[in-house]
Design a protein around this nucleic acid. Structure first.
Length: 441
RNA sequence: GGCCCUAUCGUCUAGUGGUUAGGACAGCAGCUUUUCAAGCUGUUAACUCGGGUUCGAUUCCCGAUAGGGUCACCA
């Protein structure tokens, strides 16, 4: 049997992180088994369904690198003829009937499914045997009218026509399953195999939703999370192949995936862990790829050679490009591009005095001035030149004033890195400026 | 409330009828060029409770408790 899974989002909102994981699990399961995952849009709710959301889902899926096939069944809204035929059969066979509606408009009629009031038992790949008494469901509505089918009916017909063998979906659908089984049996369809995966939870342990903050894939994308990190993190939320390994490529995930190892309980979404994954993938990037990745975080006219020089430092210390952009906007990196304004009282290290700072700065200046050009290509050469003196005089009292002179910040990378990035001339200029500030009352 | 599902560190999780219950993130401490970040090292921290079964239960069974999901002419 060729495995066919499906991902059936309703285009009523931007692609959600939980939907992304459902799509991923469907894809992993199918790909592992050598089958395929198919996409369709459940847009029977014409009020809320929007083309922009459909577009967002398609784009996000592509960005994440989750492939799918697009068969003849694509939009439910384009298939009302088919649903109508099945509905007629259901009514003629006595499985469904038109009913007057109690709520308000008495002229309106809906179509209800005639509940046989039995016990439905199905085997869930993750939870084992699940049993429901369907009499609780009453005669539920399956269509607003003969031309206007509702979710449960459409799902059953589409899954059948798409040849879906495995329905893998969120746990919130578990109580929908008996309803759908009832309809599908009335229609004489083969029952697919079900697997209900645990929900992604917010820190308050409830289903992750918009009210908890950032949930759409495009927002994570905009913040600089890379698709590999998102995929890796999402795959390991509620599933793992056993053992201690955590970093997996999509190909490795396909190879390792097994639905039996999917957890039963919900998993809390932890942004810190996602940030960690993102860092892992940033560090594994090629230099060129990282440059391209980070470029958007810099302002338009940023000096190119400075940007280039900044890359190794950035790759070492940043979790997402969005965070860099934020720091950049806040001016935290300005000193790499232009001389900072400095305040004389901030130059000396704690426990030190302006006179010492002056002496040390002057000494550092003369050392650096005599440092040959090839020593400036890395921070290492600069460090070597100053290290002995700094250690002898007390590192803090030498290095803090130097660092502050170069950055004008209480917090920044170390002075050697800054000096190597801004270059010899600028370094000497900034030391001079600090010296002047120190000696001017 | 009815129905359904679930239960290992704060979080994601590994694991077993007998283990010093392992890893990762976060936290804390130290180191790293006395700042920040990153990195490195170390470290705090968990089997919900009560009954069984058993020589022995975190592990198997039952119950309780707690949490979650769902109860639409949404999907």
């Amino acid at each position: 049997m060729r495995v066919i899974t499906r991902f059936p989002p309703s285009p009523t909102g931007y692609f959600h992180i939980g939907s992304a994981r459902t799509a991923l699990f469907n894809y992993l399961y199918a790909a592992h088994a050598g089958g395929e995952m198919r996409l369709r849009f459940e847009d029977t709710d014409t009020e809320r369904s929007k083309p922009e959301f459909e577009k967002d889902i398609v784009e996000s899926l592509a960005w994440l690198g989750i492939p799918y096939t697009k068969p003849e069944v694509f939009r439910q809204s384009e298939r009302t003829d088919i649903y109508r035929d099945h509905l007629k059969c259901l009514i003629e066979a006595g499985f469904a009937y038109e009913a007057e509606e109690a709520t308000g408009d008495s002229a309106k009629k809906v179509i209800r499914f005639k509940n046989p009031n039995t016990r439905v038992i199905f085997t869930d790949l993750i939870r084992g045997e699940v049993s429901f008494d369907t009499s609780d469901l009453k005669d539920f509505v399956i269509a607003r009218s003969i031309d206007d089918p509702l979710y449960h009916l459409a799902v059953v017909i589409d899954d059948h026509e798409m040849g879906v063998t495995h329905v893998i979906r969120g746990e919130d659908h578990i109580s929908n399953t008996p309803r759908q089984i009832l309809i599908l049996e009335a229609l004489g369809f083969v029952r697919p195999i079900y697997a209900h995966i645990p929900l992604i939870l917010a820190p308050d342990k409830t289903k992750l939703s918009k009210r908890h903050g950032v949930v759409s894939i495009n927002q994570y994308r905009a913040e600089g999370y890379v698709p590999e990190a998102l995929i890796n993190y999402l795959a390991l939320l509620g599933w793992n192949p056993g053992g201690d390994r955590e970093v997996f490529s999509l190909g490795e995930l396909i190879k390792e995936f097994s639905i039996e190892r999917v957890h039963k309980g919900g998993a809390v979404f932890d942004i810190e862990k996602l940030r960690w994954f993102n860092r892992q993938y940033l560090q594994a990037m090629s230099g060129a790829a990282f440059h391209e990745y980070i470029a958007s975080a810099f302002p338009e006219g940023a000096d190119r050679s400075t940007v280039q020089a900044l890359l190794p430092l950035l790759r070492q210390s940043i979790s997402t490009s969005g965070e860099l952009k934020k720091s950049m906007t806040a001016g935290e990196y300005d000193f790499f591009f232009e001389a900072p304004t400095i305040r004389a009282e901030n130059i000396p290290n704690k426990g030190s005095n302006p006179g010492d700072a002056c002496t040390h700065l002057a000494h550092a200046r003369s050392v650096l001035e005599n440092l040959p050009g090839n020593a400036w290509t890395s921070s290492e050469g600069i460090k070597v030149a100053l290290w002995e003196y700094a250690t002898g005089q007390g590192r803090g009292s030498v290095l803090w004033p130097l660092r502050y002179a170069l950055s004008g910040k209480q917090r920044s990378p170390d002075p050697f890195i800054i000096a190597s990035i801004i270059g010899k001339d600028e370094t000497l200029r900034r030391i001079d400026a600090a010296l002047e500030a120190l000696t001017t009352p």
